[in-house]
């Protein structure tokens, strides 16, 4: 087994654009669930909308700023579509509607009738030009050891992590303010907040939109190093984002970032070790395909252990969860 390569790949995941995208999506989900108590089980849909609403206009020749605005506006509209009928109802209704509509949008982009726009099951590619065109880094290869990338890969990482930092600062500013106090109050008991004269519906909508836009921007970061593939946006994606958020701590600033880093490092390590063991003949009873699936079984087990033994996550406050509220 090539341990150097295995660890190199794993360490590289710490700053990979995918890690940044998942962190961003988890920050958005943290605004929904961690701070406001909204049960959004359709965060994958926001990533999907961000991806397609960015890629389609880009492929049609729109400048990058238009494509980004399109992604943001589409996710705002989607948040309203989800929120208007459900946010007046009990929390569980949003959960059901989000999980269902995430599947609906995935089927919509996969339908062959829309092949001209969405590429159906093949997805979309060839949309990186506008993003690469604004890359200030001269052509070449930079970095050291496992962190050696070309100018485009560095550009994606820099922009991705800058967006993660921006989102974190935004969440920090919001949550230390009276606005944050209202949404945290809603998480605890929305009737109490209502009785104090706050428009609970409006605050829940604002939180849904903010977290959704973060998910949508995460969707853009996610596709910049790859193609748009509808198969990436299953409920599985939503649950990985949940795992990351819970791992780090749902209502914390650094939780989603560190959660995403750990998630991807561990996935990379387990993949490297399992594949290595299979190739070297140490593991004979499974194939590499099965090994890939085993990793995700491990994710499920880890999520269960986490919820049982450290429900507050890595950064969460133990005291907060020691009350049965």
């Amino acid at each position: 087994m090539d341990w150097g390569n295995i660890f190199g790949n794993a360490v590289g995941e710490i700053i990979s654009p995918t890690t940044a995208a998942y962190a961003l999506a988890a920050i958005g989900l943290g605004v929904h669930f961690g701070y406001t108590g909204l049960l959004n089980f359709g965060q994958a849909a926001f990533l999907l909308i961000g991806a397609y609403a960015f890629a389609i206009p880009t492929l049609a020749g729109a400048p990058i700023i238009v494509a980004v605005l399109s992604a943001i506006i589409c996710s705002v509209i989607f948040a309203f579509i989800l929120g208007i009928p459900t946010l007046r109802l009990r929390a569980d209704y949003l959960a059901i509607v989000t999980i269902a509509s995430a599947e609906v949008v995935r089927y919509i982009v996969t339908t062959t009738g829309l092949t001209d726009f969405t590429g159906a099951a093949n997805g979309l590619s060839g949309f990186k030009g506008t993003f690469a065109a604004i890359n200030p880094i001269p052509q070449g290869t930079y970095g050291f050891g496992p962190f050696t990338y070309n100018e485009y890969d560095w550009w994606v990482r820099i922009v991705g992590w800058a967006l993660v930092i921006l989102a974190s600062v935004l969440v920090f500013l919001l949550m230390r303010s009276p606005w944050g106090r209202v949404v945290k109050g809603i998480r605890e008991d929305e009737d109490a907040v209502r009785s104090l004269g706050k428009n609970v519906y409006s605050y829940k909508m604002q939180a849904l939109v903010i977290g959704g836009v973060m998910g949508s921007v995460a969707g853009i970061v996610f596709i910049l190093p790859r193609a748009v593939q509808p198969a990436n946006y299953t409920t599985g994606l939503t649950f990985f984002i949940w795992t990351i958020m819970l791992l780090g701590g749902a209502a914390t600033i650094f939780g989603p970032i560190v959660g995403s880093m750990i998630f991807w490092v561990v996935l990379s390590l387990t993949q490297g070790i399992l594949y290595g063991a299979i190739e070297s003949g140490a593991l004979t009873f499974i194939s590499t395909t099965q090994a890939g699936q085993i990793r995700f079984i491990l994710v499920g087990v880890a999520l269960m252990l986490l919820v049982i033994f450290r429900p507050q996550g890595i950064f969460g406050n133990k005291k907060e969860l020691s009350f049965s509220v």
Partner: peptide, 26 residues
């Protein structure tokens, strides 16, 4: 509101707070 401090509970009761607006809160 269990996972808010007693003081935060109290402050939530105040009306007309400028910091409760989305943009002014920042």
């Amino acid at each position: 509101l269990g996972r808010l401090s007693v003081l935060q509970n109290m402050l939530l009761g105040a009306t007309g707070q400028r910091g409760e607006g989305l943009f002014s809160s920042l």
